[in-house]
Design a binder for these strands. Structure first.
Ligand SMILES: [Zn+2]
Ligand SMILES: [Zn+2]
Ligand SMILES: [Zn+2]
Ligand SMILES: [Zn+2]
Lengths: 169, 169
DNA sequence: GCTAGAAATGCGACAAAGTCGCAATTAGGC
DNA sequence: GCCTAATTGCGACTTTGTCGCATTTCTAGC
């Protein structure tokens, strides 16, 4: 995995541009991100760090993570219900939205050009300048909707990308 | 305002259908909702109740609000960043999405048929059965985007409905 | 109207998530 | 290597949300 070092580079560039320092803890944070799943919270980062025998204080991570977001390395999402703050890697991967299954808890990452276009149109109509957006659709995934119309489980995604993420902590 | 009593009726019907009771506290909750702004948290409800000289315990409200959601009287939203749980009235008003201004904090409620249609299409492609969804677009409202392209402040919404909500607690 | 049983409430203790000020440490330019 | 400002760890604190239990309050049946 060389993803980590590339990310550190990204972080360093960002920090430089802001007159901030590339510290042990900040490097550690991006490494911890690599060790986490698709969606994670700040406490997960702390756990990942400790698993490597490195210690960081919660408060420090709470200060660091917003920087990673600003640097474009992380993205804040509310993929699941939205209780705890959740993040995901935001570097390199294009923007995507989430389909959250209420039964199996899986989170399916999707993206749709048509959708983005429609959002842009909506903003334009309101004279609104969009910076980012988040769409979460809750419902039942193909595997789980068997209650209701059974036999639908084998759908294939069309030309959209779809990443199924392990869900349910 | 007779909205309240209509809402109580809605609640009563729901509770009946579930063998639950229409209690003092539950009525109080829907009244507190009326007294709250467009978006509010459970603690706001408690405050609203206390302002009327009525006391409810936090725990009770935490138990009551999910019922109001199930009854269709409230909707859980993450209109602002998403730290505390937020709710809004969900009765009578059609579904809408939120444009959140990063500068003035206003939350603009919008709805777009084209958008909903696109979402339906997206779900269909993934064999996903949608139950509900939430879209939040962050950026700068017409009044605030003056940084950048000044002079845009007087945009008129097109044929979309738009409700501007007081924002910024 | 009275009573038994179920449901709802208040209470308080708790857990998790997040924030803050401050003293000790460290990165990085010189 | 030194100096200074930035960063960290710490711990105390707030906010948000949950839980079990004793008490109160509905409701249905008598
Ligand atoms: Zn599922
Ligand atoms: Zn995702
Ligand atoms: Zn604004
Ligand atoms: Zn709203």
């Amino acid at each position: 995995m060389k993803g980590s070092s590339a990310t550190v580079g990204q972080l360093e560039r960002f920090l430089r541009s802001r007159g901030l320092r590339l510290t042990r803890c900040r490097k550690l944070a991006v490494e911890a991100v690599e060790a986490c799943g698709a969606h994670f919270g700040i406490e997960d980062l702390k756990a990942a760090a400790r698993a490597k025998g490195l210690r960081v204080h919660r408060a420090t991570l709470y200060r660091t993570v917003p920087l990673l977001v600003e640097a474009g390395i992380l993205r804040k999402v509310s993929a699941s219900g939205g209780d705890r703050g959740e993040y995901e890697k935001g570097l390199g991967r294009g923007h995507h939205d989430h389909l959250l299954c209420l039964r199996c808890g899986r989170s399916i990452e999707v993206s749709s050009v048509a959708m983005e276009r429609e959002q842009a149109r909506l903003c334009a109509r309101h004279g609104f300048l969009a910076v980012d957006h988040q769409l979460r659709i809750r419902g039942y995934c193909a595997d789980c909707r068997s209650d209701g119309q059974p036999g639908d489980a084998a759908r294939r995604p069309g030309r959209e990308s779809a990443v199924i993420v392990a869900g349910r902590r």
